[in-house]
Amino acid sequence: MNRRHHAVTLQQATEESPTLARLAGLTRDSSERLRAVEPLIPPLLRPAIRPGPIEGTTWCLLVRSSAAAAKLRQLLPALQAHLRSRGWEVTAIRLKIQT
Results as ranks from 00 to 15, higher is better:
Met1Trp: 03
Asn2His: 11
Arg3Phe: 03
Arg3Lys: 12
Arg3His: 10
Arg4Asp: 13
His5Ile: 14
Ala7Trp: 10
Ala7His: 11
Val8Ala: 10
Val8Phe: 05
Val8Cys: 08
Thr9Ala: 03
Gln11Phe: 06
Gln11Asp: 15
Gln12His: 13
Gln12Ser: 13
Gln12Arg: 15
Ala13Glu: 02
Ala13His: 04
Thr14Met: 06
Thr14Pro: 00
Glu15Thr: 12
Glu16Met: 12
Ser17Pro: 07
Leu20Asp: 11
Ala21Asn: 11
Ala21Ile: 00
Arg22Leu: 15
Arg22Trp: 07
Arg22Phe: 13
Leu23His: 05
Gly25Phe: 05
Gly25Glu: 13
Glu32Gly: 05
Glu32Pro: 00
Glu32Asp: 12
Arg33Lys: 14
Arg33Ile: 13
Leu34Arg: 09
Leu34Glu: 06
Leu34Trp: 14
Arg35Cys: 02
Arg35Asn: 06
Val37Glu: 13
Pro39Asn: 02
Pro39Asp: 02
Pro39Val: 09
Leu40Lys: 10
Ile41Gln: 05
Pro42Ala: 15
Pro43Val: 09
Pro43Trp: 00
Pro43Lys: 11
Pro43Met: 02
Leu44Met: 09
Leu44Arg: 14
Leu45Ile: 07
Arg46His: 07
Arg46Lys: 13
Pro47Met: 12
Ala48Trp: 06
Ala48Phe: 09
Ile49Tyr: 06
Arg50Asp: 04
Arg50Lys: 12
Arg50Trp: 07
Pro51Val: 11
Gly52Thr: 03
Gly52Val: 03
Pro53Glu: 14
Pro53Arg: 15
Pro53Lys: 13
Pro53Met: 02
Ile54Phe: 12
Ile54Met: 05
Thr57Gly: 01
Thr58Tyr: 00
Trp59Arg: 09
Trp59Lys: 04
Cys60Trp: 09
Leu61Trp: 09
Leu61Ile: 08
Leu62Met: 10
Leu62Ala: 08
Val63Gly: 11
Val63Glu: 11
Ser65Thr: 15
Ser66Trp: 11
Ser66Pro: 08
Ser66Ile: 02
Ala68Pro: 03
Ala68Val: 04
Ala69Asn: 06
Ala69Met: 04
Ala70Arg: 07
Lys71Gly: 06
Lys71Arg: 15
Lys71Asp: 08
Leu72Ile: 01
Leu72Phe: 00
Leu72Asp: 03
Arg73Thr: 06
Gln74Val: 14
Leu75His: 04
Leu76Trp: 05
Leu76Met: 13
Pro77Asn: 05
Leu79Cys: 07
Gln80Asp: 00
Gln80Phe: 00
Ala81Cys: 01
Ala81Pro: 00
His82Tyr: 02
His82Cys: 11
His82Phe: 03
His82Gln: 15
Leu83Asn: 10
Arg84His: 01
Arg84Glu: 05
Arg84Val: 02
Ser85Thr: 10
Ser85Val: 00
Gly87Arg: 12
Trp88Val: 03
Glu89His: 10
Val90Phe: 01
Thr91Gly: 03
Thr91Ile: 01
Thr91Ala: 09
Ala92Cys: 01
Ala92Arg: 14
Ile93Trp: 06
Ile93Asp: 08
Arg94Ala: 11
Arg94Pro: 01
Leu95Asn: 03
Leu95Gly: 07
Leu95Thr: 09
Lys96Asp: 01
Ile97Ala: 02
Ile97Arg: 10
Gln98Glu: 14
Gln98Asn: 10
Gln98Tyr: 09
Thr99Met: 01
Thr99Glu: 09
Thr99Lys: 01
